[in-house]
Amino acid sequence: MTSEANDILVIGGGVIGLTSAIVLAEGGHRVRLVSRDPAADSTSAVAGGLCWPYRIQPHAPAVRWSLRGFEILSRLAERPRETGARMVAGTMTEPAAAGPEDDGDPLAAWYAAVPGLRRARPDEVPEGHTGRRARTPLVDMPTHLHYLEQRLRAAGGTVERTTFTSLAEAGQEAPVVVNCSGLGARELVPDPQVHPVQGQLVVVADPGIEEWYVCAAPGATDTTYVLPQPYGVVVGGTAHENAWSTEPDPAVAEAIVARAARRFPALAGAEVLAHRVGLRPARAAVRLEGERLPGGAWCVHNYGHGGAGVTVAWGCADEVRRLVYEAPAV
């Protein structure tokens, strides 16, 4: 397909690519989204879906993007069966020694802006921990990704299964390319700064858990999270830097459930429904900027969101739209 037939080519079919494509298509552009895999097979489909900035840098823009995500996902939560988003109360905790005071906490602006967010009482967190309570969007990702694809198509966008070997190749097919290739950017750009942070989780039958719960010390490789979804409870997890395997480790799965069961004993006997492993596309800092490609196409990069892709997607999509509009003249 020639550039005359397309205004914008978006590479990447996960939540980052889909939201970027939607914002552009609903803004009047003709958008063609291409990806190697269907959204259902993307890293986004494995995500727990909690709206909270996690393992993402730099903090200041990440909080701004996260608050935009909170705003939009909260609205989508008014139609949970269609969009997959719901508002669910829960607790974010960490060992007390690991938690800085608010005035030095890089997420202080997030704490201040989320409606109703408060410090957890001692009886609401494990002994020796501190935490915060909030009602936040929790997203059923398979449903949400289907919703996003349908919304893109309704705005006139197209979705194709195609791969490119380079951005220069993609730039031959459209005057504007939006690179949302996630971990694929390591080879496509190429950008060796992009690396995987492996996350393993277990899905179990819901024994009656109504709130989400996360316990994660900064930089920890083993975390605990319990996220009730319509299809079961997502129990996690791990954050292993530079681990490429997508095969679940039975011993790791057993340890994951055991950690969660210390907080929710009913999980110990819950039926296991699925084992999943996803590779978070991590980078020292999100790359969200434009550059001119060989041949003249304008490329907007939007990748490296680590464990916060669902949270920051809409905020980053707004930045993509701005960068597309501000493309310098050739």
Rank of each mutant, 00 (worst) to 15 (best):
L152R: 02
Q172W: 09
Y213Q: 02
A109V: 14
G182V: 03
S166F: 12
P190F: 09
L76H: 05
A327D: 14
G28N: 15
D140I: 11
V46D: 13
A216Q: 12
A40D: 15
A25K: 02
A260R: 01
G309Q: 01
E78W: 00
L273N: 06
R64L: 08
G269Q: 04
Y111I: 10
L167V: 10
D318V: 03
W314K: 03
G236R: 01
R32K: 15
R186N: 10
R133L: 12
G84L: 01
A5L: 14
D102N: 09
A329M: 15
E160T: 13
H144V: 03
R132H: 13
G309L: 02
N302S: 09
L201E: 07
E169C: 10
V324Q: 02
G315Q: 02
A45H: 07
V233E: 02
S20Q: 05
P294M: 11
G49R: 01
W244R: 04
P53E: 06
A98K: 13
A239N: 13
E210K: 00
S66T: 00
P294V: 12
T143I: 14
D140S: 12
T224W: 06
E319Y: 04
R280C: 07
L76K: 00
A120S: 13
A274H: 12
E94C: 11
G182L: 06
L138H: 04
L18C: 08
A113Y: 08
A216H: 13
A45E: 04
R283P: 06
A220C: 12
S74Q: 02
G296K: 08
A261T: 05
G296L: 10
R36W: 11
A260P: 01
V202L: 03
W65N: 03
P142I: 11
F264W: 06
V194R: 04
P53H: 02
L273W: 08
E173G: 15
P190W: 11
R292S: 14
A284C: 07
H29K: 15
P58R: 07
R259G: 07
V252Y: 03
E169F: 10
V202F: 02
R81W: 02
F70D: 03
R263I: 12
G27R: 10
N242P: 03
L18Y: 02
G17T: 06
H146R: 15
R30N: 14
I16D: 01
A239S: 13
Q150E: 15
R292P: 14
A21K: 02
A282C: 11
G296A: 12
A168R: 15
Q229F: 01
V177A: 09
P80Y: 02
G237K: 02
A170T: 11
A327M: 13
A329C: 15
A217E: 12
R292H: 14
G131Y: 11
V46C: 12
S3Q: 15
T224P: 06
T221P: 11
V233R: 01
S20E: 04
G236A: 11
H301L: 08
A251H: 11
P38N: 14
P115Q: 04
L273M: 05
A120Y: 10
R119S: 14
V324G: 04
R79C: 04
L117S: 09
G28Y: 15
L145T: 10
R287Q: 07
P142C: 12
A155Y: 06
G296C: 13
I8H: 07
P100W: 10
S66L: 01
E71M: 00
